[in-house]
């Protein structure tokens, strides 16, 4: 394989890796706050992909408007899910396992709902950008991929700023490190959790829109969350920077492997590598192992 092809593959991979990073961070945000694996994030992605499709195809074919509307819709969907299925459990003080079961159930609900109602068709977004490629020397970059990468970078940069610098971001971090103390200090924990779900949902909405735009929409598009989860594990569960690096790495690795050993063998190698990674470095590339409190 010559350098040119290699670079080309890495470039393609990184573009998709941006979306993996979005998913990893959206997933990791909730993991950090409530300490459970939120599979319903995949449901939000699927739902948003459909919402984005219907908005752009039937309402108004403007990329910017429908994109923003879908992002907000994703956020609202996540907040609604939190209100309906997670908050009652939290209120009653049930174990975290109940949250996991409900999140898996919601993921299943969304997938099966769309499978039953719209499952037989594939839906394609309108063409916002003519599928032209940019040429950089010998490299070609699809404009859609470039747009995806750009959006991912802006969104994640923005989120990182919000989490580090703003008041609500600090509150989210406080609740993440200890869910009981901030409430003693007058922080409205329920509100903070809602906001965290909103942010996570916005990321999910954007993910759904981008995936729908780049591929076609089907009920199983949310299964792509697996890639985000993997990036989240590699990145160390909930570290934004870790998730971003891992998402990009995963995208690049995947694209290189597909070119080198074929699409059939690639998932085997990648998933095998994850298990090996956990053996060697369970905390991921940027995370810490959480110790159980005695």
């Amino acid at each position: 394989m010559n350098w040119n092809i290699l670079l080309q593959q890495i470039l393609n991979g990184i573009s998709l890796g941006g979306v993996y990073a979005l998913m990893a961070v959206g997933f990791g945000l909730i993991f950090n706050v409530l300490k459970f694996s939120n599979f319903s994030h995949g449901g939000v992605v699927t739902l948003s992909a459909y919402i984005g499709f219907f908005l752009s195809q039937h309402l108004l074919p403007s990329f910017l408007v429908t994109f923003l509307l879908t992002a907000v819709a994703g956020g609202l969907a996540a907040v609604t899910i939190e209100r309906l299925v997670f908050r009652p459990i939290r209120r009653k003080g049930y174990p975290v396992s109940m949250l996991i079961v409900n999140s898996i159930t919601v993921a299943m609900l969304v997938q099966q709902f769309f499978a039953v109602t719209l499952g037989s068709d594939y839906y394609t977004y309108p063409v916002f950008i003519k599928e032209t490629a940019l040429h950089l020397g010998n490299l070609t970059v699809s404009k859609i991929y470039l747009l995806m990468l750009g959006i991912s970078a802006v969104v994640l940069g923005g989120l990182s700023y919000v989490i580090r610098k703003t008041k609500i971001g600090i509150a989210i971090r406080a609740v993440s490190s200890d869910i009981s103390t901030p409430s003693l200090m007058g922080v409205n924990v329920d509100f903070v959790i809602s906001v965290a779900f909103f942010f996570s949902g916005v990321l999910g909405g954007i993910t759904g829109y981008l995936l729908g735009m780049a591929f076609t929409v089907d009920p199983f598009i949310g299964s792509m969350i697996l890639k985000g989860i993997i990036a989240s594990i590699i990145g160390g569960m909930g570290s934004i920077l870790g998730g971003v690096i891992a998402g990009l790495l995963l995208g690049a690795a995947e694209s290189l492997l597909i070119a080198e050993i074929g699409a059939a063998l690639t998932p085997i190698v990648i998933y095998g590598a994850i298990i090996v990674l956990l053996l060697i470095r369970p905390q991921g590339i940027a995370g810490k192992i959480a110790e159980v409190k005695a």
Partner: peptide, 23 residues
């Protein structure tokens, strides 16, 4: 490799396993 870690890792790795076996 997984059962010594937090429960979530086990959940996520078994998720990976199912995809790996399928592939």
């Amino acid at each position: 490799p997984t059962l010594r870690l937090r429960r979530d890792y086990f959940l996520l790795v078994t998720f990976c396993l199912s995809e790996m076996v399928r592939a």
